[in-house]
Amino acid sequence: MIALEPYLDLIISVVYVVGIVLFLSLFALFATWLERKVAGHIQDRLGPMETGGWHGWLQPIADAIKLLIKEDIIPAAADKKLFKLAPYLVFIGSLAGFAVLPFAANLIGSDLNIGVYYVIAVTSLVVIGILMAGWASNNKWSMYGAMRSAAQMISYEIPVALSLLIPVMMAGTMSMVEIVDNQAGGFWNWYVFRTMPFSLIAFVIYFWASLAEVNRAPFDLPEAESELVAGYFTEYSGIRWAMFFLAEYGDMFVVSAIAATVFLGGWYAPFPFLDIIPGPIWFIGKTAFLVFVQMWLRWTLPRLRVDQLMYVCWKIFLPFSFANLLLVGLWVVLKG
């Protein structure tokens, strides 16, 4: 009998990764359904109603099966190697973010000492993947989509990083678990509500800039379907397209989960007596709420123009983030 003891870590890691991939797929299925329902009801429609009986709950599964058995088309003039590689890169970049999401105190892939920084770093992979997809498709829409996406993601990485620095400064650590632990005991201890109004502004800036990071409306210029067909994944079909799709919904989850972690108290309940409900439920609940707000915004606001997009980033988010950072820094120093 082989002693399992030394391999326990390894086995747990593998199980965790498989679990995360499963979770991501399930979440994407749920989110597509939710997205269509939210869109429908905001526009006084019903959304999918037929498949599966109750409010069309089987619709995403039907869609997924359709995607999986679809023909995989690679354009003749495409750069085949890069075309095949790009979706995996984007998917890996999105999946890597899950490694440091603290679903609960012990339910975390790896409590990295540089957790927040790590997330910002691995998202760079997504930018490269998108650029690769856009170029390899050999299609002008893909190309424009990729360029816009990269420009937008690089620009908005700065306000995102700056506003994430504020809770990091308040907690004095970049480890996700410690940041959450510092917010224990009721919602008034959450970082959004401490140092009002600075952290609230930081939260708002983070949320909006993260919308641009994941190419969601109103910052969905990279895939603006009315002008660019589908942006960088115009030429993709079947399973490769599904990869992009998964990555997009994965990204939505990751940015919302980070917001929930560093601003909204992670796995802690808003009131201490509610702590009997297990942490992961609170964590996923808060994240799902933020995802819902993302969808809500998408069906409220029209798409921005490129110059407006850049104006919002460089002239509004950036100065406010800097001022915020200085003031919160002062607050931290004065508080000792």
């Binding site: 939210v38 009801h41 429609r45 915004l297």
Partner: peptide
């Protein structure tokens, strides 16, 4: 204006739908 727009869509979210199945 964003808040106003979100309020409007929020209200519509709970309005009865006009879809005829």
């Amino acid at each position: 204006t964003v808040s106003l727009g979100m309020w409007i869509t929020f209200r519509h979210f709970f309005m009865p739908t006009i879809t005829v199945q």
